[in-house]
């Protein structure tokens, strides 16, 4: 009788372990996801391919950007997050094409595709080893995803096991939201000019 109880217990434990393993098996996308390199706003964050530092972050209800023919106004039901940063390639020339705003609820927002024509946005600039250059990132997020967010920057969204900078952003609140930000084309040294209104 004692032996039967032991066998039954062993089977139940084994089934429990197998169930737990089945439920916790990571997806292929998790296994090959980028390797995070942690950092904070205001510090230099070094990945193996590039270094990045976040200088300033602005929040606004609307963005104005003059295109070739007319001035465009970009409104949102959420908030525009405008991030000014500096990037330096480490070993070889590269472009950065992946920037995501990771909200406190785990929601990810890719950099806005509505403003890709603004100079300095990801993909518009080639970064060179030894030459730090400014990079602009603009996100459109709900108000609830501003405070306690992280910024994720990588060379490409499709680079398995490459390093990705995970930058803890300084505390932001809805009091910091400006009515409007105007962006215009800058020069060679600073590709854009930002004016808060």
């Amino acid at each position: 009788m004692n032996g039967a109880v032991r066998s039954l217990t062993a089977v139940i434990v084994a089934a429990g372990v197998l169930y737990a393993m089945q439920r916790s098996t990571p997806l292929y996308s998790d296994i090959t996801s980028p390797v995070p390199v942690a950092g904070r706003q205001g510090e230099r964050v070094d990945t193996s391919a590039f270094a990045i530092g976040i200088a300033k972050v602005y929040l606004a209800r609307s963005i104005t950007f003059p295109s070739l023919s007319r001035t465009q106004h970009y409104a949102t039901s959420g908030v525009w997050v405008v991030v000014e940063s500096a990037v330096e390639a480490k070993n070889e020339s590269l472009g950065l094409t992946s920037a995501e705003w990771l909200g406190p609820d785990g929601l990810r927002y890719r950099y806005s595709q509505r403003l890709t024509n603004v100079p300095g946005m990801p993909g518009n600039e080639q970064f060179e080893p030894g030459i730090p250059r400014p990079m602009l990132m603009i996100f459109e997020v709900p108000e609830s995803q501003i405070a306690g967010a992280r910024l994720l920057v990588a060379r490409s969204p499709y680079a398995p096991l490459a390093e990705e900078a995970w930058i803890d952003m300084a505390a932001l609140s809805t009091d910091d939201i400006h009515p409007s930000i105007t962006l215009s084309r800058g020069g060679q040294q600073m590709p854009w000019i930002l004016k808060v209104e």
Partner: peptide
């Protein structure tokens, strides 16, 4: 094509 220095850094040509 790339320009390489004595530290092994590589630069691509300008577009």
């Amino acid at each position: 094509l790339a320009l390489v220095d004595d530290r092994g850094r590589r630069w691509k040509g300008t577009f």
